[in-house]
Amino acid sequence: MVSDLILSVILIILALVWGYIGIFQLGLWIPGVSADSGFIPTVFSVVLLICAVLSLVQTLKKLREGGAEGGAVENPLSNFELPAFIRKYSVVLFCIFGILCLQYLGLVPMCFLLIFGWMILMNRFPLVRSFLIAAIVTVCIYLIFDFWLKIPFPGLF
């Protein structure tokens, strides 16, 4: 419930910002010529605003009716078992780590380290198995994207 509320509020703010910039900075209309840059963004930000407000109203109604029962079911933390919850954030952390690897170290280290690290830390696979899987995938990715398609990756490798 609470997260629904937060989402609606964020969407409303987004719609207001888009609409504000659209109307005041970009201009809606050039009379006699055509629509200006801000026209389409403002139109759709209005659509977003209306729908987000309607959603907000709906959520508030539910909150008032639902009461304690509604709150307990919707509490996001209790929806996930702890391991899954942590897993979700670990994935994001792994991805961030991977992106940084790509930027500073290059394609081959990124592929290898990301998969290897994942296998060991998240799946708890034995060392050798993790190595093999990581190595095979790294070789494939390297051959396809770097060797064949010649995409210029950053980093050292």
Partner: peptide
Amino acid sequence: KKRSVLCLVLAAILALGLVGCGGGSS
């Protein structure tokens, strides 16, 4: 046995890395 397999694989990876390194010089 496991360790020697490990070493072999490590060596293979390193070799690959060097090959990949060929593109960028320092």
